[in-house]
Structure formats: structure tokens, C-alpha cells
């Protein structure tokens, strides 16, 4: 069972703002879904072995990028060719 406090904590971790009025509903639904996920407890641990995988990554090839004005075109907060983000400190 997760509590409303747990749900608020998860919302903080995910930077999802949820409204107080939504909290009880979110918590109830969360628990119903997590109860359903409990079926995965029956999957035996010895089957968690990852099967062989081949590396399919290619070498990086440098290609001409998009023009700066196109990259910035969708941002309303920009300065000197940079995106302007909210302050961190």
C-alpha cells in the first residue's frame, strides 16, 4: 500500500505538480494498479537472467546540425544563442 504522503513524494521526484484535490483519487487508483502488478511476484527469480544481446550501436558520424535559429525557434526564453532555463541556485 502506498500512502498519500508516498504519492506526493513520487510526484516531487517526477516534477509532476498534483493538486491537493487530486491526491486521494491518485492514491486510490495507484493502489489498485499496484495490487494488480503484484502478479509479477510469481515470476521466478531464476528467469530474470537477461538473454544474450548483441551490440547494435554504430560509430558516431558527425553531420551538419540544424541551423541555430531553427533549434531555438520553439523556445520563448532565449539569450545569445542559448536557451534560458529557470534558475538552479
Amino acid at each position: 500500500m502506498v500512502s498519500e504522503r508516498d504519492v506526493l513524494h513520487i510526484a516531487e521526484l517526477a516534477d509532476i505538480g498534483i493538486d491537493k484535490e487530486e491526491l486521494a483519487e491518485f492514491t486510490g487508483r495507484f493502489n489498485e494498479i499496484l495490487d494488480y502488478f503484484d502478479i509479477l511476484d510469481q515470476v521466478s527469480a531464476d528467469e530474470t537472467r537477461e538473454s544474450d544481446r548483441a551490440n547494435v550501436f554504430r560509430e558516431d558520424v558527425v553531420e551538419p546540425p540544424l541551423p541555430e535559429e531553427e533549434v531555438l525557434a520553439n523556445s520563448r526564453e532565449k539569450e545569445d544563442g542559448f536557451f534560458r532555463a529557470p534558475r538552479v541556485m
Binding site: E12, D15, N74, S75, R76, E77, F83, R84, A85, P86, R87, V88
Partner: peptide, 14 residues
């Protein structure tokens, strides 16, 4: 930051 309606640049980032 890069697309969509802008975040408020005056608020702390979280």
C-alpha cells in the same frame, strides 16, 4: 525550456 508553453524563468527550477 526548449518547446511548448514556457516555464516561468523567475521561479526556482523544480
Amino acid at each position: 525550456v526548449r518547446y511548448g508553453p514556457p516555464a516561468d524563468p523567475k521561479l526556482p527550477w523544480h
